[in-house]
């Protein structure tokens, strides 16, 4: 039951992009085509899950016992940076096709605040456990994917539309994101 609530909350109610404002940079940056947004979502799912797994273990079994929890931010960002590099190297060797699909997005993920954000938020889950933290990361990356792909689909359609000059580019994209966020607001109170 707990897990269903986490899933619904992360995907719809507290969507990581549209209501928590994490991962806005890739959300605005790589959403001009549906195909790239799917690639990005895949890379985020991969890294976010792995990063949360590692940082959760690091925090619970090294930082807290050593009384070094004030090093949380610095340790997490280093883990994420190293992880991204490692994933890149391993993917290149093990699965060149997957690397081809995700490779260009991997370096961008280090500075994707959604990854660090979810790793930190996962520590504060009620009755937290490793399984719950990892599930939380998966749920959030599904939420990220949903927002990103819906947004990219709208933007693809928009290319044909006649937009006032001053609104072109950034403003219209922000406005669409706003309306999307408004739509997701309808889910509030669901859990």
């Amino acid at each position: 039951m707990d897990y269903i609530i986490i899933l619904i909350a992360a995907v719809f109610v507290n969507n990581i992009v549209l209501s928590q404002f994490l991962g806005i940079c890739p959300f605005l940056g790589v959403s001009n085509k549906v195909s790239t947004s799917i690639g990005m979502s895949g890379a985020v799912l991969f890294v976010m899950t792995l990063a949360t797994l590692v940082t959760y273990l690091l925090y619970q079994f090294i930082l807290i016992p050593a009384g070094l929890n004030y090093l949380r931010t610095i340790a997490f960002i280093l883990v994420i940076a190293a992880l991204v590099q490692m994933v890149e190297i391993i993917l290149k060797k093990v699965s060149p096709s997957l690397y081809q699909a995700l490779g260009v997005f991997l370096p961008l993920i280090t500075t994707n605040c959604a990854v660090l954000g979810v790793a930190i938020l996962a520590l504060g889950l009620e009755n937290g456990s490793l399984l719950k933290a990892v599930f939380f990361a998966v749920a959030n990356s599904i939420g990220f994917a949903l927002a990103l792909i819906v947004f990219a689909s709208i933007r693809e359609q928009l290319e044909l539309a006649n937009i006032p000059k001053g609104m072109k580019g950034v403003p219209i994209n922000l406005l669409i994101a706003g309306l999307l966020s408004l739509a997701f607001l309808g889910f509030t109170g669901l859990v």
Binding site: V170, P171, L174, L175, G178, S181
Partner: peptide, 21 residues
């Protein structure tokens, strides 16, 4: 609406228009 999440996007969109202008 403006202190809720959608308002952030919408307000920034119009500020960006103004700033461009």
């Amino acid at each position: 609406l403006f202190i809720l999440p959608p308002g952030a996007f919408i307000a920034l969109a119009y500020l960006a228009v103004l700033f461009n202008k």
